[in-house]
Design a protein around this nucleic acid. Structure first.
Length: 305
DNA sequence: CGATTCCCCTGATAGC
DNA sequence: TGCTATCAGGGGAATC
C-alpha cells in the first residue's frame, strides 16, 4: 500500500518523465474511480492541458496542469489529484486496449515497454495519453483509488487536501510541534500516527516500523507518552521515512514505482508482516493483533504496554 | 461530538 | 476438483 515514501518515489520519477507533456486523450474502464468531474466530462476537461509539476501531499499525488488561452498570454492552473489507496499506482509506459469479446465491451491492456516486452496487465483502469507517444496509467487491483480533477483553486479547497495534517518530513514539523500534535490525542498511538488529519502520509507499514524502532507498544495511549518516548518516536519517524524514500519504498501488496519496479525497503522491514518471526533486537516472536480492522505488528518484549 | 462498524473490490487462502 | 466463505486494507460514510 503506497504510503509517503512510495508516493514520493513515484512523484520523483514522474517529475523526471512527464513535465512539459500534454495530455492528448484519456481512456478508462472504471468510471467510479473518477470522483470529480463526472467521468463522462473527464476527458473533455483535461484534454490538451500541459503538465507543469508533480508534488506530493500526504499520500496524494498532485499533478499541476496548465491551460493557456490567447496563444499563451492567459493561463489557468488545474490540478489532478490521485490517491492510490491500497493497490493503486501510477505507471509510465505504453499500453493498448484490446477488445476481448465482440459481445462484451470488456477490454484487456497489453503492456509494451519500448519494444522489449508485451504482457497483459488487467489492472490498468485509467490511461492518460501523452504527446510523446507514452502514457501515464493508473493500475489498481482493488479499484479503491480515487481521482479528482478541476481548477487548482477548487481542488485545493476540497477536504481531501484541507483536512490533512502536517508533513512529517517538513522542516517546520520539529520535535515540539510533533509532541503537541501527538499529546492532543487520547487514542492509541498507532491509530494517531496513521490518522491523516494529525500527520499526513503514514500508514500501516511505517507506523508499525516506527513504533518498533521507538520501542513503543501500538496500544499505548498517545497522551500518556512521556517526553523521552516522544523524542524517540519523532526521530524514528524521521529516520525511517527518510530511509524508505532512499530505498524507493516497500513492495508490499503490489506496489511498484513509476516504471513498475519494486522498492527495496521491504527487505529491511522489522515487524510488518513478520508475525511469529524473531524480533531483530531480542529474538522474541513478533505478534500480530487486530486494531480497528487493521493489523498491527509488534514485539511483545521490546514494546511494553 | 467521538468512537465504532460498514463498505468499496478482488486475489489468496481455508474449509467443505 | 470446485465451490463458498473469509480476510486484507485506506479512508469515507453511516451508525451507535
Amino acid at each position: 500500500m503506497p504510503e509517503l515514501p512510495e508516493v514520493q518515489t513515484i512523484v520523483d520519477d514522474l517529475n523526471k518523465k512527464i513535465i512539459g507533456r500534454r495530455i492528448t486523450g484519456v481512456w478508462f474502464d472504471a468510471p467510479k474511480l473518477i470522483k470529480k468531474p463526472k467521468s463522462k466530462d473527464f476527458e473533455k476537461e483535461i484534454k490538451g492541458l500541459k503538465i507543469i509539476e508533480i508534488r506530493r501531499r500526504g499520500k496524494n499525488i498532485l499533478i499541476y496542469l496548465e491551460k493557456c488561452h490567447m496563444s499563451g498570454v492567459k493561463c489557468q492552473m488545474f490540478l489532478l489529484l490521485v490517491h492510490q489507496k491500497l493497490t493503486g499506482h501510477l505507471l509510465y509506459g505504453k499500453w493498448r486496449t484490446i477488445k476481448v469479446s465482440r459481445f462484451k465491451s470488456l477490454k484487456v491492456k497489453s503492456l509494451i515497454r519500448g519494444s522489449l516486452e508485451e504482457k497483459v496487465n488487467n489492472y490498468i483502469h485509467l490511461i492518460f495519453y501523452l504527446d510523446n507517444g507514452w502514457q501515464l496509467g493508473l493500475s489498481d487491483l482493488r479499484k479503491f483509488a480515487k481521482v479528482l480533477f478541476g481548477p487548482k483553486k477548487e481542488i485545493e479547497k476540497l477536504p481531501d487536501l484541507t483536512k490533512l495534517g502536517p508533513e512529517p518530513l517538513d522542516q517546520s514539523f520539529n520535535l515540539s510541534v510533533f509532541q503537541s500534535a501527538i499529546l492532543k490525542n487520547k487514542g492509541k498511538i498507532k491509530q494517531v500516527l496513521m490518522n491523516q488529519e494529525i500527520i499526513a502520509g503514514i500508514g500501516n507499514i511505517y507506523s508499525d516500523e516506527i513504533l518498533w524502532q521507538a520501542k513503543i507498544h501500538p496500544f499505548r495511549l498517545a497522551n500518556k507518552l512521556i517526553a523521552n518516548e516522544l523524542t524517540n518516536l519523532y526521530s524514528a519517524m524521521r529516520q525511517i521515512l527518510k530511509k524508505a524514500i532512499k530505498l524507493r519504498g516497500t513492495s508490499i501488496s503490489d506496489y511498484r514505482d513509476a516504471e513498475g519496479r519494486p522498492g527495496a525497503y521491504g527487505k529491511i522491514l522489522k515487524v510488518y508482516q513478520k508475525e511469529n518471526k524473531p524480533c531483530r533486537r531480542c529474538r522474541t516472536l513478533i505478534k500480530r493483533v487486530k486494531m480497528g480492522g487493521r493489523s498491527s505488528h509488534y514485539c511483545p518484549k521490546c514494546q511494553k504496554i
